[in-house]
Design a protein around this nucleic acid. Structure first.
Length: 422
DNA sequence: TCTGGGGTCCTATTCCTA
DNA sequence: TCTGTAGGAATAGGACCC
């Protein structure tokens, strides 16, 4: 209507919801005897790392991704739990079910964190802050867990805001934080400029050190630096990106579902491997696990990547692309074997990994063919999938693994935090 | 004092082809 | 037929995230 006042559209509201000490909190919930103790979820073995830890453990300096051996030194009386991926998945799903009551625009970042676009939900449920409070209450009441919520007009400030909402560690456990932390559009730049560059999403140890070399330690200094100067140490793309973030220029949307770009598995062994036959058997195992997932997701892949970490921790990758994409175990194994055979393994192999990329929808893909034109059959893989469905994962295993000490089937999330053996 | 496993994205180099 | 070159794809490595 001419002359009518435009209805005030609500300000963009992005929530970042982050579970507090997720894995450790779930374990404490399921095992009451572990409550209020320094608790570490992760790999117990010599090559394990910390996946998550309670606030009581954090007080001693224990952090996620830290080698377990170091964590034990810092906090010798901590209880170690190896963790159960499936359990965390269940809790994560229940959390998402709560989110769905407020908005369909949910972008899961990991099991324990997600972005929610609640711009359009504000008329119905109140401001972003109010929605954040309600989500917190419901997760607490229905799941028995605490989450921290950041509210802002952009994704990356929402992410930083949830960090500001989090509890602090003490000997007695978490000291509650604000729980919900709001950064308005007007406050965003001052909020950002008070932070160290390391706080920005995408600035890790390497970038922080490079920025330091041109005298940049804070987001404010980064913001006031010419992008061309930043580019001299970080490259053009990330320089422009970080400079934009420093001024709260972030127009990235909450993306509900994105297709995976690669599927892979890797494993660190309790002892380094020096034997080609043993490595071949491990390839069989890894590829079996990868292709099972590919077929379950109905995708095929064109590029095979092999990853080898040597005893010295030197890591290399070798890849080769097929003329046509596939999810066929033997076709992939052939390539992976070729790649492996071209590598000198005298140093000893600590980790082996296989991943498939250049993924395509299996339904729209022409079948991989042999040179004479016959299609490479996936009948065998399909039959194996069926038998496992009916009789269990252990009912059929690749021949090289029969009678070996390795478990036949490689499970997603299995020994995710390192080998358990000493 | 030793560094997991799942990924994504970016950059530099190499190789191929027009 | 040889040479130079521009651009794209493939490859390798590394940084970063949870």
């Amino acid at each position: 209507v001419a002359g009518a006042a435009p209805s005030a559209s609500p300000e963009r509201a992005i929530l970042h919801v982050d579970m507090d000490a997720f894995f450790a909190s779930v374990e404490a919930l399921e095992h009451p005897e572990l409550r209020n103790k320094p608790l570490i979820v992760g790999g117990d073995g010599a090559r394990g790392v910390v996946a998550s830890c309670s606030y009581e453990a954090r007080f001693y300096g224990v952090r996620s991704a830290m080698p377990s051996s170091k964590a034990k030194r810092l906090c010798p009386h901590a209880v170690f739990v190896s963790g159960s991926y499936g359990l965390y998945e269940t809790y994560s799903k229940r959390m998402h079910d709560i989110f769905k009551d407020f908005t369909p625009l949910i972008e899961g970042i990991s099991l324990d964190e997600a972005f929610l676009d609640v711009t359009g939900a504000q008329r119905l449920f109140g401001s972003g802050e109010q929605i954040g409070q309600r989500i917190r209450e419901r997760v607490r009441d229905e799941l028995g867990l605490t989450v921290s919520v950041g509210v802002a007009t952009t994704k990356h400030v929402a992410k930083l805001a949830s960090e500001a909402a989090k509890p602090k560690a003490s000997r007695q456990g978490p000291i509650p934080g604000p729980g919900v932390f709001v950064v308005t559009e007007a406050d965003a730049v001052p909020f950002l400029h008070g932070l160290p560059v390391r706080a920005l999403w995408g600035v890790g140890p390497a970038a922080a050190q490079r920025l330091e070399s041109i005298g940049v330690q804070t987001v404010r200094q980064l913001a006031n630096m010419a992008p061309s100067v930043i580019a001299s140490v970080l490259g053009k793309a990330s320089a422009q990106h970080l400079h934009d973030l420093a001024w709260n220029r972030d127009d990235r949307d909450v993306v509900v579902e994105r297709a995976a770009k690669s599927i892979g598995h890797e494993q660190t062994y309790p002892r380094d491997l020096y034997d080609r036959a043993a490595l071949h058997d491990q390839l069989v195992r890894l590829i079996d696990a990868v292709t099972v997932r590919m077929r379950a997701d109905q995708v095929v892949g064109r590029t095979v990547q092999l990853k080898v970490r040597f005893a010295t921790f030197r890591t290399i990758t070798r890849s080769r692309s097929l003329p046509k994409p596939t999810a066929n175990s033997s076709a992939i194994l052939k390539i992976a074997d070729d790649l492996l055979n071209a590598i000198d393994i005298a140093e000893g192999v600590r980790l082996l990994g296989v991943s498939m990329s250049n993924l395509e929808d299996a339904a729209f893909t022409e079948q991989l063919q042999f040179l004479d034109g016959r299609p490479v059959s996936t009948d065998l893989d399909d039959a194996i999938d069926l038998i496992r469905q009916r009789f269990g994962d252990g009912s059929v295993v690749p021949a090289p693994l029969v009678g070996s000490t390795s478990p036949g089937r490689f499970q997603r999330g299995e020994r995710q935090w390192g080998p358990n053996a000493p």
